[in-house]
């Protein structure tokens, strides 16, 4: 089980959290102007890297807030967490 440092509540066990996928995927401002391929990229394509991964978590059984996290997907070691909306 991961020990995840919530930026608001501090280090807590993983089962207080819900994983919410790759971070920094912004919904396109004008979807109707997008090509099908660009829309598919937004909806479905994921970086899925072997190594550093910026991802979202939500502290559902705590403060309830979303935040971002950089984790190494080979070692599962968490590099840092930071508030949603801030740059990685």
């Amino acid at each position: 089980m991961l020990i995840i440092p919530c930026p608001y509540c501090g280090a807590r066990p993983e089962n207080e959290f819900r994983y919410a996928g790759e971070a920094h995927i912004a919904r396109p401002a004008d979807p109707e102007a997008l090509s099908d391929a660009a829309w598919a990229d937004f909806l479905y394509m994921r970086t899925n890297p072997k190594g550093r991964h910026a991802e979202r978590w939500r502290h559902v059984h705590g403060c309830g807030r979303f935040f971002n996290c950089v984790r190494d997907t080979v070692t599962d070691r968490i590099e840092r967490t930071y508030p949603a909306g801030t740059a990685p």
């Binding site: 089980m1 991961l2 993983e14 899925n48 991964h53 997907t73 080979v74 599962d76």
Partner: peptide
């Protein structure tokens, strides 16, 4: 497990 990983291991819970 809940999160993406290449670790070929998983959490005990």
């Amino acid at each position: 497990d809940a999160y993406t990983s290449y670790s070929q291991t998983g959490a005990l819970h």
